[in-house]
Design a protein around this nucleic acid. Sequence first.
DNA 1: ACCATTACAGACCCATAATATCTTCAATAG
DNA 2: CTATTGAAGATATTATGGGTCTGTAATGGT
Lengths: 138, 138
Amino acid sequence: MKYSQATDYALHAMLYLVAEAPNKPVSVQLLAEKLGVSQTYLSKMLTKLVKAGLIHSVSGANGGYKLKRNQDDISFLDVIQAIEGTTSLFECSFHHDSACLIQQVVADAEQQMMHTLKSKKIADLVAHIPKQPHERLT
Amino acid sequence: MKYSQATDYALHAMLYLVAEAPNKPVSVQLLAEKLGVSQTYLSKMLTKLVKAGLIHSVSGANGGYKLKRNQDDISFLDVIQAIEGTTSLFECSFHHDSACLIQQVVADAEQQMMHTLKSKKIADLVAHIPKQPHERLT
DNA sequence: ACCATTACAGACCCATAATATCTTCAATAG
DNA sequence: CTATTGAAGATATTATGGGTCTGTAATGGT
Protein backbone atom coordinates (compact mmCIF):
# COMPACT_ATOMS: atom_id res chain seq x y z
CA MET A 1 0.00 0.00 0.00
CA LYS A 2 1.75 3.08 -1.25
CA TYR A 3 0.98 6.34 -2.92
CA SER A 4 1.48 5.98 -6.64
CA GLN A 5 4.56 7.30 -8.35
CA ALA A 6 2.25 9.68 -10.17
CA THR A 7 1.74 11.49 -6.86
CA ASP A 8 5.48 11.78 -6.52
CA TYR A 9 5.69 13.39 -9.95
CA ALA A 10 2.80 15.73 -9.23
CA LEU A 11 4.22 16.92 -5.93
CA HIS A 12 7.60 17.64 -7.41
CA ALA A 13 6.08 19.37 -10.41
CA MET A 14 3.99 21.56 -8.12
CA LEU A 15 7.02 22.39 -6.03
CA TYR A 16 8.79 23.51 -9.16
CA LEU A 17 5.89 25.70 -10.22
CA VAL A 18 5.56 27.24 -6.78
CA ALA A 19 9.27 27.79 -6.30
CA GLU A 20 9.97 29.27 -9.70
CA ALA A 21 6.54 30.94 -9.92
CA PRO A 22 7.14 32.61 -13.26
CA ASN A 23 4.48 34.75 -14.86
CA LYS A 24 4.77 32.97 -18.15
CA PRO A 25 3.48 29.40 -18.24
CA VAL A 26 5.85 26.45 -18.03
CA SER A 27 5.56 23.81 -20.74
CA VAL A 28 5.33 20.09 -20.07
CA GLN A 29 8.50 19.67 -22.02
CA LEU A 30 10.46 21.88 -19.66
CA LEU A 31 8.93 20.35 -16.56
CA ALA A 32 9.55 16.80 -17.78
CA GLU A 33 13.11 17.74 -18.55
CA LYS A 34 13.67 19.22 -15.10
CA LEU A 35 12.20 16.17 -13.40
CA GLY A 36 13.69 13.63 -15.75
CA VAL A 37 10.46 11.88 -16.64
CA SER A 38 8.51 11.41 -19.86
CA GLN A 39 6.45 14.30 -21.16
CA THR A 40 3.42 12.24 -22.12
CA TYR A 41 3.04 10.63 -18.75
CA LEU A 42 3.69 13.77 -16.75
CA SER A 43 1.11 15.58 -18.85
CA LYS A 44 -1.59 13.27 -17.48
CA MET A 45 -0.75 14.29 -13.94
CA LEU A 46 -0.78 17.95 -14.85
CA THR A 47 -4.17 17.58 -16.50
CA LYS A 48 -5.45 16.10 -13.25
CA LEU A 49 -4.06 19.05 -11.35
CA VAL A 50 -5.85 21.36 -13.77
CA LYS A 51 -9.14 19.55 -13.24
CA ALA A 52 -8.62 19.77 -9.52
CA GLY A 53 -8.32 23.52 -9.94
CA LEU A 54 -4.78 23.79 -8.60
CA ILE A 55 -3.15 25.04 -11.76
CA HIS A 56 -4.21 26.66 -14.97
CA SER A 57 -3.32 25.62 -18.49
CA VAL A 58 -2.70 27.71 -21.59
CA SER A 59 -2.98 26.01 -24.95
CA GLY A 60 -1.15 26.97 -28.08
CA ALA A 61 2.28 28.29 -28.79
CA ASN A 62 4.16 29.53 -25.71
CA GLY A 63 1.52 27.82 -23.65
CA GLY A 64 1.98 25.67 -20.58
CA TYR A 65 0.95 25.61 -16.96
CA LYS A 66 0.63 28.37 -14.41
CA LEU A 67 -0.42 28.40 -10.81
CA LYS A 68 -3.86 29.67 -9.99
CA ARG A 69 -4.12 32.80 -7.86
CA ASN A 70 -4.50 30.78 -4.62
CA GLN A 71 -0.75 30.32 -4.89
CA ASP A 72 0.32 29.93 -1.28
CA ASP A 73 -2.73 27.98 -0.22
CA ILE A 74 -2.04 24.81 -2.12
CA SER A 75 -1.59 22.04 0.41
CA PHE A 76 -0.01 18.63 0.12
CA LEU A 77 -3.44 17.15 0.57
CA ASP A 78 -4.75 19.08 -2.43
CA VAL A 79 -2.12 17.60 -4.70
CA ILE A 80 -2.33 14.09 -3.29
CA GLN A 81 -6.10 13.95 -3.57
CA ALA A 82 -5.99 15.38 -7.07
CA ILE A 83 -3.98 12.34 -8.13
CA GLU A 84 -5.04 9.59 -5.76
CA GLY A 85 -8.67 10.54 -5.47
CA THR A 86 -10.62 11.08 -2.29
CA THR A 87 -11.78 7.59 -1.47
CA SER A 88 -10.95 6.69 2.08
CA LEU A 89 -8.00 4.50 2.95
CA PHE A 90 -10.11 1.72 4.38
CA GLU A 91 -13.57 0.52 3.62
CA CYS A 92 -15.16 -2.36 5.42
CA SER A 93 -16.57 -4.94 3.04
CA PHE A 94 -18.68 -6.78 5.57
CA HIS A 95 -22.34 -6.51 6.23
CA HIS A 96 -22.89 -4.95 9.63
CA ASP A 97 -26.20 -4.02 11.14
CA SER A 98 -24.63 -0.81 12.45
CA ALA A 99 -21.51 1.10 11.48
CA CYS A 100 -18.26 -0.86 11.47
CA LEU A 101 -16.21 -0.04 14.55
CA ILE A 102 -13.01 -1.07 12.82
CA GLN A 103 -13.64 1.31 9.99
CA GLN A 104 -14.27 4.13 12.41
CA VAL A 105 -10.91 3.64 14.05
CA VAL A 106 -8.95 3.53 10.81
CA ALA A 107 -10.90 6.44 9.34
CA ASP A 108 -10.15 8.48 12.43
CA ALA A 109 -6.43 7.79 12.12
CA GLU A 110 -6.55 8.68 8.45
CA GLN A 111 -8.27 11.94 9.30
CA GLN A 112 -5.33 12.94 11.45
CA MET A 113 -2.92 12.32 8.63
CA MET A 114 -5.10 14.29 6.24
CA HIS A 115 -5.29 17.16 8.68
CA THR A 116 -1.52 17.40 8.74
CA LEU A 117 -1.27 17.17 4.98
CA LYS A 118 -3.86 19.88 4.65
CA SER A 119 -2.12 22.29 6.97
CA LYS A 120 1.20 21.82 5.22
CA LYS A 121 1.50 23.92 2.08
CA ILE A 122 3.76 23.34 -0.88
CA ALA A 123 4.98 26.90 -0.50
CA ASP A 124 6.25 26.06 2.99
CA LEU A 125 9.11 24.18 1.40
CA VAL A 126 10.24 27.00 -0.82
CA ALA A 127 11.68 29.08 1.98
CA HIS A 128 14.10 26.28 2.79
CA ILE A 129 15.49 26.15 -0.70
CA PRO A 130 18.45 28.31 -1.72
CA LYS A 131 17.16 30.40 -4.61
CA GLN A 132 19.82 29.46 -7.13
CA PRO A 133 20.30 26.16 -8.91
CA HIS A 134 17.25 24.57 -10.44
CA GLU A 135 18.56 21.10 -9.89
CA ARG A 136 17.88 21.26 -6.17
CA LEU A 137 14.18 21.56 -6.80
CA THR A 138 13.60 18.29 -8.57
CA MET B 1 -4.62 4.06 -2.79
CA LYS B 2 -6.36 1.81 -0.33
CA TYR B 3 -5.60 -0.87 2.16
CA SER B 4 -6.20 -4.27 0.61
CA GLN B 5 -9.27 -6.30 1.37
CA ALA B 6 -6.97 -8.81 2.99
CA THR B 7 -6.37 -6.26 5.75
CA ASP B 8 -10.11 -5.98 6.18
CA TYR B 9 -10.36 -9.74 6.62
CA ALA B 10 -7.47 -9.84 9.05
CA LEU B 11 -8.82 -7.07 11.25
CA HIS B 12 -12.23 -8.64 11.48
CA ALA B 13 -10.78 -12.06 12.15
CA MET B 14 -8.64 -10.62 14.94
CA LEU B 15 -11.60 -8.85 16.42
CA TYR B 16 -13.45 -12.14 16.51
CA LEU B 17 -10.55 -13.90 18.21
CA VAL B 18 -10.14 -11.13 20.76
CA ALA B 19 -13.84 -10.77 21.47
CA GLU B 20 -14.61 -14.45 21.80
CA ALA B 21 -11.19 -15.19 23.28
CA PRO B 22 -11.81 -18.89 23.81
CA ASN B 23 -9.16 -21.12 25.29
CA LYS B 24 -9.60 -23.66 22.59
CA PRO B 25 -8.36 -22.70 19.15
CA VAL B 26 -10.71 -21.52 16.44
CA SER B 27 -10.49 -23.25 13.08
CA VAL B 28 -10.26 -21.43 9.76
CA GLN B 29 -13.48 -23.10 8.78
CA LEU B 30 -15.39 -21.50 11.64
CA LEU B 31 -13.78 -18.10 11.15
CA ALA B 32 -14.46 -18.13 7.42
CA GLU B 33 -18.02 -19.08 8.09
CA LYS B 34 -18.51 -16.26 10.57
CA LEU B 35 -16.98 -13.72 8.22
CA GLY B 36 -18.55 -15.11 5.10
CA VAL B 37 -15.34 -15.47 3.11
CA SER B 38 -13.46 -18.38 1.62
CA GLN B 39 -11.44 -20.59 3.96
CA THR B 40 -8.44 -20.93 1.70
CA TYR B 41 -7.92 -17.24 1.22
CA LEU B 42 -8.55 -16.34 4.82
CA SER B 43 -6.05 -18.96 5.88
CA LYS B 44 -3.31 -17.07 4.08
CA MET B 45 -4.03 -13.96 6.10
CA LEU B 46 -4.01 -15.96 9.31
CA THR B 47 -0.68 -17.45 8.39
CA LYS B 48 0.68 -13.95 8.01
CA LEU B 49 -0.66 -13.04 11.43
CA VAL B 50 1.08 -16.10 12.83
CA LYS B 51 4.37 -15.10 11.24
CA ALA B 52 3.94 -11.62 12.66
CA GLY B 53 3.64 -13.21 16.08
CA LEU B 54 0.13 -11.95 16.80
CA ILE B 55 -1.56 -15.30 16.98
CA HIS B 56 -0.56 -18.88 17.48
CA SER B 57 -1.56 -21.87 15.42
CA VAL B 58 -2.25 -25.45 16.45
CA SER B 59 -2.04 -28.11 13.76
CA GLY B 60 -3.96 -31.36 13.72
CA ALA B 61 -7.41 -32.38 14.77
CA ASN B 62 -9.21 -29.82 16.94
CA GLY B 63 -6.54 -27.35 15.95
CA GLY B 64 -6.91 -23.78 14.86
CA TYR B 65 -5.79 -20.33 15.94
CA LYS B 66 -5.40 -18.81 19.36
CA LEU B 67 -4.25 -15.42 20.52
CA LYS B 68 -0.81 -15.12 21.97
CA ARG B 69 -0.48 -14.13 25.60
CA ASN B 70 -0.05 -10.41 24.74
CA GLN B 71 -3.81 -10.43 24.23
CA ASP B 72 -4.80 -6.87 25.03
CA ASP B 73 -1.72 -5.32 23.48
CA ILE B 74 -2.48 -6.10 19.88
CA SER B 75 -2.88 -2.82 18.08
CA PHE B 76 -4.48 -1.96 14.78
CA LEU B 77 -1.04 -1.12 13.49
CA ASP B 78 0.21 -4.60 14.32
CA VAL B 79 -2.47 -6.22 12.21
CA ILE B 80 -2.25 -3.77 9.34
CA GLN B 81 1.51 -4.04 9.10
CA ALA B 82 1.35 -7.82 9.30
CA ILE B 83 -0.69 -7.80 6.10
CA GLU B 84 0.42 -4.68 4.26
CA GLY B 85 4.04 -4.74 5.21
CA THR B 86 6.04 -1.93 6.74
CA THR B 87 7.18 0.01 3.72
CA SER B 88 6.41 3.67 4.05
CA LEU B 89 3.48 5.28 2.31
CA PHE B 90 5.58 7.54 0.17
CA GLU B 91 9.02 7.22 -1.28
CA CYS B 92 10.58 9.86 -3.45
CA SER B 93 11.93 8.43 -6.68
CA PHE B 94 14.02 11.43 -7.63
CA HIS B 95 17.68 11.98 -7.24
CA HIS B 96 18.29 14.70 -4.68
CA ASP B 97 21.60 15.79 -3.37
CA SER B 98 20.10 16.03 0.12
CA ALA B 99 17.01 14.48 1.67
CA CYS B 100 13.74 15.11 -0.15
CA LEU B 101 11.73 17.75 1.66
CA ILE B 102 8.48 16.45 0.19
CA GLN B 103 9.14 12.99 1.52
CA GLN B 104 9.82 14.38 4.95
CA VAL B 105 6.45 16.10 5.07
CA VAL B 106 4.49 13.06 3.95
CA ALA B 107 6.45 10.73 6.18
CA ASP B 108 5.75 12.98 9.14
CA ALA B 109 2.03 12.90 8.43
CA GLU B 110 2.12 9.14 8.06
CA GLN B 111 3.86 8.86 11.39
CA GLN B 112 0.95 10.56 13.06
CA MET B 113 -1.49 8.09 11.60
CA MET B 114 0.70 5.20 12.64
CA HIS B 115 0.92 6.55 16.13
CA THR B 116 -2.85 6.57 16.41
CA LEU B 117 -3.16 3.09 14.96
CA LYS B 118 -0.54 1.86 17.37
CA SER B 119 -2.24 3.29 20.44
CA LYS B 120 -5.60 1.87 19.45
CA LYS B 121 -5.94 -1.78 20.44
CA ILE B 122 -8.27 -4.36 18.95
CA ALA B 123 -9.45 -5.11 22.47
CA ASP B 124 -10.64 -1.52 22.81
CA LEU B 125 -13.56 -2.35 20.56
CA VAL B 126 -14.72 -5.35 22.52
CA ALA B 127 -16.07 -3.34 25.42
CA HIS B 128 -18.46 -1.61 23.04
CA ILE B 129 -19.96 -4.82 21.82
CA PRO B 130 -22.95 -6.40 23.57
CA LYS B 131 -21.71 -9.80 24.65
CA GLN B 132 -24.38 -11.85 22.94
CA PRO B 133 -24.94 -12.43 19.23
CA HIS B 134 -21.91 -13.41 17.22
CA GLU B 135 -23.24 -11.76 14.12
CA ARG B 136 -22.41 -8.32 15.44
CA LEU B 137 -18.75 -9.15 15.46
CA THR B 138 -18.30 -9.83 11.81
C1' DA C 1 -4.18 32.50 -43.87
C1' DC C 2 -0.77 29.28 -42.48
C1' DC C 3 2.22 26.85 -39.59
C1' DA C 4 4.64 25.50 -35.51
C1' DT C 5 3.74 24.77 -30.82
C1' DT C 6 1.30 23.20 -27.08
C1' DA C 7 -2.38 21.04 -24.10
C1' DC C 8 -5.93 17.35 -24.11
C1' DA C 9 -8.26 12.94 -24.86
C1' DG C 10 -8.44 8.36 -25.81
C1' DA C 11 -6.86 3.92 -27.19
C1' DC C 12 -3.60 0.68 -26.27
C1' DC C 13 0.30 -2.29 -24.01
C1' DC C 14 2.91 -4.42 -20.40
C1' DA C 15 4.26 -5.65 -15.70
C1' DT C 16 2.91 -6.30 -11.26
C1' DA C 17 -0.15 -6.97 -7.46
C1' DA C 18 -4.60 -8.46 -5.46
C1' DT C 19 -7.97 -12.00 -5.13
C1' DA C 20 -9.00 -16.53 -5.11
C1' DT C 21 -8.79 -21.67 -5.85
C1' DC C 22 -6.66 -26.28 -5.83
C1' DT C 23 -3.43 -29.64 -4.52
C1' DT C 24 -0.10 -31.61 -1.68
C1' DC C 25 2.29 -32.11 2.68
C1' DA C 26 2.93 -32.07 7.69
C1' DA C 27 1.22 -32.28 12.36
C1' DT C 28 -1.72 -34.27 15.81
C1' DA C 29 -5.81 -35.79 18.67
C1' DG C 30 -8.51 -39.73 19.29
C1' DC D 1 -4.23 -45.55 11.74
C1' DT D 2 -7.24 -42.13 10.44
C1' DA D 3 -9.80 -38.03 10.29
C1' DT D 4 -8.90 -33.30 11.01
C1' DT D 5 -6.53 -29.19 10.49
C1' DG D 6 -2.78 -25.71 9.35
C1' DA D 7 1.21 -24.59 5.88
C1' DA D 8 3.03 -24.04 1.51
C1' DG D 9 3.17 -23.80 -3.29
C1' DA D 10 1.30 -23.66 -8.07
C1' DT D 11 -1.93 -21.72 -10.80
C1' DA D 12 -5.71 -18.76 -12.74
C1' DT D 13 -8.11 -14.43 -13.00
C1' DT D 14 -8.77 -9.80 -12.69
C1' DA D 15 -7.50 -4.95 -11.45
C1' DT D 16 -4.27 -1.40 -11.18
C1' DG D 17 -0.18 1.23 -12.16
C1' DG D 18 3.00 2.91 -15.35
C1' DG D 19 3.78 4.16 -19.71
C1' DT D 20 3.57 4.96 -24.97
C1' DC D 21 1.37 6.52 -29.21
C1' DT D 22 -1.87 8.92 -32.06
C1' DG D 23 -4.99 12.22 -33.17
C1' DT D 24 -7.49 16.64 -32.10
C1' DA D 25 -8.15 21.30 -30.65
C1' DA D 26 -6.41 25.76 -29.35
C1' DT D 27 -3.39 29.67 -30.16
C1' DG D 28 0.52 32.71 -31.00
C1' DG D 29 3.90 34.24 -34.62
C1' DT D 30 4.80 35.21 -39.28
